[in-house]
Amino acid sequence: MKHSIKNAHIGLNTFNYGATIQQLLIKDKNGNDVNVVLGFDKEEDYYDNPFYLGASIGRYAGRISQGGFSLNGDHFALHQENGVHLHGGKNGLNKKHWQLESMEQDTDTPFITYSVTSPHLEEGYPGNLKVSVTYRLVGNRLEIAYEATTDKATVLNLTNHAYFNLEGKDSVLNHELKLSSKTFVELDKKLLPTGDFLFVKDSAYDFLNPEIIGNKPGFSGIDDVFVLNGEGLAAILYSPETGIEMKVATNQRAMVIYTPEDLGERNFVNGANYGNFSSICFEAQTFPDAPNQPNFPSAVLQPGEVYSNKTILEFGIR
């Protein structure tokens, strides 16, 4: 089912399937609405969504190695393909019909809240997990807040998988990108963390100073885990064509930046057409494979604790 909220600055459309962002309407420098996220026309289109467009990802965003993990002396086996468990498994939270908990349009800060319960050992994860996400419009900001509780110790890493294009068409190669990250996670050929960190300086991932994405020497796409320099501003994306600027802030330790080369032929909302490198994801989260990487910050959630993942997308015209 589709739900919509808006204020003077932003319009948001979501589906309860996967607690998915379908459209995010922002006014460009000429006052025209631009849908700055990639979305499909109908909710049913998301049933076949291998790229997780717009979806809420869990129980564990990113990759887990070794076919599972051990916690408090118990081993938990997870679904894997080619030795990799990805984005919560075969039927992660992105494939659930979330419940509409509450929705308010007639307020200065309209919001939509969805919730879902994942039972003990679903997809192999321990604990009965209760998750909620709230999408709230505050002035020129979209605030995304995930919260979760469990009745058994478990591992958790939630994120939103929206794909951004500030022109609503073509590609992001002409977008300007700035990342507040000095280091990134070294990955192996299966895109699993090695446990080591590398400096972005003098690499293809150095966006400490704003750069046009397609002008980056040797650019061949990004699919990497960036270590954030601290709570606050993580990234800035800007389109010279529309004048729209998006600032991304989060309370998370890391952010996966992903620029898919080719999403294939898809039924995009309003017949939008995209080319290669159509979009960019800002997946705020903790580190992938943290359950198997002793040097990474813990991703364990204990009973009595409340997991919190907050991301703020602030829009303006430059």
Rank of each mutant, 00 (worst) to 15 (best):
T259F: 09
E104H: 07
E43W: 05
L177C: 04
V36S: 10
P291V: 03
F40V: 01
Y60H: 14
F15C: 03
K90H: 15
A61T: 13
A8M: 08
G139R: 02
G218C: 08
K310V: 05
L191D: 02
I317P: 11
L237C: 13
Q293W: 08
A148P: 12
L198A: 05
L156C: 10
L173S: 06
S181G: 06
Q252G: 10
Y274G: 12
N16A: 09
F207S: 02
N128C: 08
P288G: 13
F184M: 14
T250R: 03
K27M: 12
V227F: 05
V155Y: 05
Y47Q: 13
V84N: 04
L208C: 07
L93Y: 10
L71Y: 12
S102R: 13
L137F: 06
N174F: 03
F207N: 02
T107L: 10
F282K: 15
T14Q: 07
A145V: 11
D202M: 01
L78P: 00
G83Y: 04
Y114R: 05
F164P: 03
L156H: 09
T107M: 07
G304W: 02
V37M: 03
K152E: 15
I144P: 04
R253G: 10
N273L: 09
D188I: 01
E211G: 06
G304H: 05
T159H: 04
S70H: 12
Y17S: 01
P260M: 04
D33F: 11
I257C: 11
H75V: 09
T134H: 01
V131A: 11
P193S: 02
G62V: 06
K6Y: 14
N82M: 07
R136S: 07
K42R: 13
D223H: 08
G54K: 14
A145M: 06
H75L: 05
F69P: 15
K95A: 12
S118T: 09
E101C: 04
K42I: 00
Y17M: 04
I280D: 07
Y47I: 08
G232I: 12
V225I: 14
Q293P: 09
A8V: 11
P50I: 07
K152V: 12
F296R: 14
S279D: 14
K310P: 03
D41F: 00
K2P: 06
A284G: 10
S239P: 15
G31E: 07
L71R: 15
E147S: 07
N309M: 07
A249E: 15
N128F: 04
R266I: 00
